[in-house]
Design a protein around this nucleic acid. Structure first.
Lengths: 147, 147
DNA sequence: CCAATACTTGCACGATGACGCAAATGAACA
DNA sequence: TGTTCATTTGCGTCATCGTGCAAGTATTGG
């Protein structure tokens, strides 16, 4: 439930308004870029992870826990930032849901810790997948290279 | 209107209401986790990049351009997804602003291409920085390891 | 059993974001 | 110069998000 397709009209409004285009007479059929290859990039670029880390408060919570090196309780983490404890609780749940953190309950205390392996693995795989797309040994961006 | 204007104070209400805490008597002073080390994690976890990639449409645009391997015009990229061309234009600008893409103008056409080097470098540095925080050779998450 | 602790959930609210449409800008070409 | 093409910008709308407070739910300890 992180962020499903809001809008709801998006697709229909564009996919079916072929004859009604005021703008360019663009054809919605066979976008050759996307069809080129369905490599691992699509799944790795899944916005879920980024969605979790895009909030400044959440990012700082992750940094806080990561630097701590061990599991931290909600109250402990809440000392790191200036938002309400309930907000921290919510943020940590979101991060855990996205696979950034994992949870361990001990009595009435809840410990959150960084999923080091998963996270770094994902980041490196993403970097590899992007490299994979790179045209040959081009310095950057193929025909669009700054020079 | 059970409980109207409680907003508006947000920051002050938390930074200065030390003695008025209903919840935990949390002290805002010296959060020891954050103080532990100010490593590169903080800057690398800058939400800017994640903010740019957290939108599904933007993520698919990046994947589209990346897989294309070369620079793509706005109109070309717009064929990849079902949103209006103006929306694509806006998204691409956001991505370029975040350093994910770079721009090259040629006549009246604007080409966007992935900043391969910068992006992969950043991702790998982030992975390294996270690894750095990892306690010794622990499999994952120190005291919070799943088992 | 009751109280305290640690956290989560419900709720309302303001801010931000994504979107489509229409109009505007800028570059090439007649 | 005026027209066409490619893209950007203004604007209004609607959904989602982050937040604080209050109340609720476990869990521990007396």
């Amino acid at each position: 439930m992180t962020q499903m397709n809001k809008r709801t009209r998006r697709v229909s409004s564009r996919a079916s308004s072929i004859g009604a285009r005021t703008r360019a007479g663009k054809r919605p059929a066979t976008p050759r870029h996307a069809a080129a290859c369905a490599g691992p990039l699509d799944s790795l670029l899944n916005p879920g992870l980024f969605r979790a880390l895009c909030d400044p408060t959440r990012a700082s919570l992750v940094a806080c826990i990561a630097k701590c090196g061990r599991g931290c309780s909600v109250g402990e983490v809440a000392e790191c930032c200036s938002v309400d404890l309930s907000v921290v609780s919510r943020h940590l749940a979101i991060l855990a849901d996205a696979g950034v953190l994992h949870v361990r309950k001990e009595g009435r205390t809840v410990f959150y810790a960084v999923c080091y392996s998963d996270l770094t693995k994902l980041l490196r795989e993403l970097a590899d997948a992007i490299d994979e797309c790179r045209p040959d040994g081009s310095p950057d961006g193929g025909c669009c290279a700054p020079r």
